[in-house]
Write a protein that binds this DNA or RNA. Structure first.
Lengths: 201, 201
DNA sequence: GAACTAGTTGAACGTGAATTCAAATACTCA
DNA sequence: TGAGTATTTGAATTCACGTTCAACTAGTTC
């Protein structure tokens, strides 16, 4: 028998297990048994904690998103100058490679968001928060005279996040020439014209 | 009994039916019975033409992609000056709204491309062809002196396609403020700095 | 350490989907 | 027109999954 755990501990485990199962089988392909296997439990045990699998999946997606976003914020807090912030943020929005679990998970949402309102809302809220994050970097740099913005910061920020998103897909789809480094350089080339700064950290 | 059709006609029907079924249920959620229902046939009939459902799904995705791309090329051929071409192409890469079937279908590939090599290859090949399309517009405009490019045309083209992709997701996910018009304007703002042209058609 | 509680298992059951295939039907062409 | 062929159906079968639940186990409490 698998190690016994408290209700809260087990729920955390299950959310992690669901995250892995989604990455492996797709948000519409995950089965109860996949989650159980990832968690090292039987289906019955999973059902004991989450009588409705779809709720667990939503929680897993939600948790994955929050983790991704919080991690970016945390990294951001380690530096102060706007140039470093911008460069670092661009990097942290890209997958480390085709197998990056965080981005793989988010990518699963793309298609489902068109069919499922809950996923649409989740994904939209992540996008908006990331836009705010970029916008505040741009505005700060602008106020300090480091950046000379080529347009309004909201539009620039929206485009930066959009580029991240798109290259995330390219990288996880294993584009033969666009990897993390190339994608970062492509986004940086946009960021340079947007900020009028060379962005050499 | 459903109307009898020739092998080739029926296969075309089935590809269309599969396309609709994928949009409705997701690439990993589609079932044989969904396709059969969309086609107005029984499961047995579908299996008679496609013993392997996954092959039909790949063909449906392939056909959807080709159609999307060919349609863009055809539109592009109706105008000659680079400014009109660029503006029109940006528009034709965006969904008409959250329900746009072509983009909905493509979005289904995003997540699956990370798990399934075939889908990864399909999606990557579409991306690359779209990049070429933009690149040729940019190069022509540059040669004619209409555009003064802010960087190499390949990078600019890659970013333009990336922006289209990303806003396609935003729109199908029903972002409350980013619709087709707003997305087009955001991409255009990038295209303006990229080409040094006001892009007023 | 006995009674109680919470978590887990495994087997039984029901459901729905894929698969198979013989029979029925509609078309082709001699 | 009639024999032959291609397409479709519908029923039977099998399989995989979700669901339920009684029994079991490991903690917890008094």
């Amino acid at each position: 028998m698998a190690q016994r755990k408290s209700r809260t501990d087990r729920r955390i485990d299950l959310i992690e297990a669901a995250r892995r199962a989604i990455i492996r089988h797709g948000i519409d392909g995950v089965q109860l048994s996949h989650v159980a296997e990832e968690a090292g439990l039987t289906s019955g045990a999973v059902l004991y904690h989450y009588p409705d699998l779809s709720e667990l999946l939503v929680e897993a997606q939600h948790a994955g998103m929050e983790r991704f976003y919080e991690q970016r914020l945390r990294q951001l807090a380690t530096v102060t100058d706007p140039v470093s912030k911008l460069v670092m943020t661009i990097r942290s929005g890209l997958p480390t490679g085709p197998l990056d679990p965080d981005v793989r998970l988010l990518n699963e949402l793309g298609g489902a968001a068109g069919r499922n309102r809950v996923y649409g809302v989740l994904l939209t809220s992540l996008y908006d928060r990331q836009v705010s994050m970029y916008q505040s970097i741009l505005d700060t740099g602008s106020a300090l005279g480091v950046f000379r913005l080529s347009g309004d910061s909201l539009s620039l920020a929206r485009n930066l996040v959009a580029l991240e998103d798109a290259y995330g897909y390219r990288i996880t789809a294993r584009h033969p020439v666009i990897g993390p480094d190339e994608a970062a350089e492509l986004i940086l080339s946009y960021a340079r014209t947007a900020t009028g700064n060379d962005l050499v950290a």
